[in-house]
Amino acid sequence: MSLVSLGDMAQSFMLRRHMGQVKADLALHTQEMTTGLTTDIARRTDGDLGPLNAISASLARLETLASVTSEMQLWSGAMQSALEAIDNRAIELGPQLLSAASARQPATFAAVSGEGEAAFLAAVGYLNTSLDGRALFGGVATDHSPLPDSASLLNQVAEVAQGATSVADLRDRLDTWFGPGGGFETAAWRGGAALEPVTIAQGETARLTPTALSDGIRDTLKGLALAALAGRDLPGPGIEDKAAMLAAAGDTLIGSSGARAALSADLGITEQRIADAQTRNAAEMTALKFAESQIRAADPFEAASRVQEAETQLQLIYTLTARLSGLSLADYLG
């Protein structure tokens, strides 16, 4: 039966089916060509989205790390310049104090003591610096300055020194006050515990350790305070006492330079690590974006040739439809 006849509907059904298929293909490949992305990512990856998900997760994280590290860089830079400023003042003042102590000129005493006081006030000011609303040297207490304002801190130190009978006694008192567990920590310090490490790259952390409680800072403040107190006639107004005080101040400042340098160096290493991490993160991001586009991108040449193919096929179907509909015996029967 089917050998001698072919139902009319079979032909139109077949043509319709092919036309639908080719049109769907055409739409798909046109979309791929215009967006440059594959339309069905699951089909492209055979349903294994693990690698693509991992890449997206890494990219999202690297973007955040880029902003986190640039912030860290800002803060560590500000801390570094504060430390430098304090160090410069101390290095300048140390020899001046020693030479003034040996010169024994009361006029010079007053001048260098005044210098010392100014330097103390400036140093405390630097330690109380905040950047973008964040206190830098207070550990986790970032919302307020770690030390009282500079004048009242100096007054606190003066109160401790009040009533000291000799230079040695005064030095002892200040050593205790600035030492571990002393008044500087318990009364003056308002900061918190050390900062937590911050993630700067995949599996790598950095932490900004310097605080107003770091060793180099304490000794520097102590030295500057000694010079300032000499100007306030403590422990006494005698030339000998003043000379001894200034000599002690100079010694302390010069002696603490190593600790200050170490503090700066540590911070410098952290800064370097942050910069390295930034570079590596950027490189990783480029590599991951490339890998992502390898997975997601549709080959434009392939898409274009598929579009062409579908176009040709559709034109053929149209031609056939027109020709076949003209082929009817009824048209030839006169």
């Binding site: 039966m1 089917s2 009319d8 509907m9 079979a10 059904f13 089916r17 015996l329």
Partner: peptide, 10 residues
């Protein structure tokens, strides 16, 4: 399609 092929052929 096979079923339609057995249908009416004008």
């Amino acid at each position: 399609e096979q079923e339609l092929a057995g249908g009416v052929d004008t």
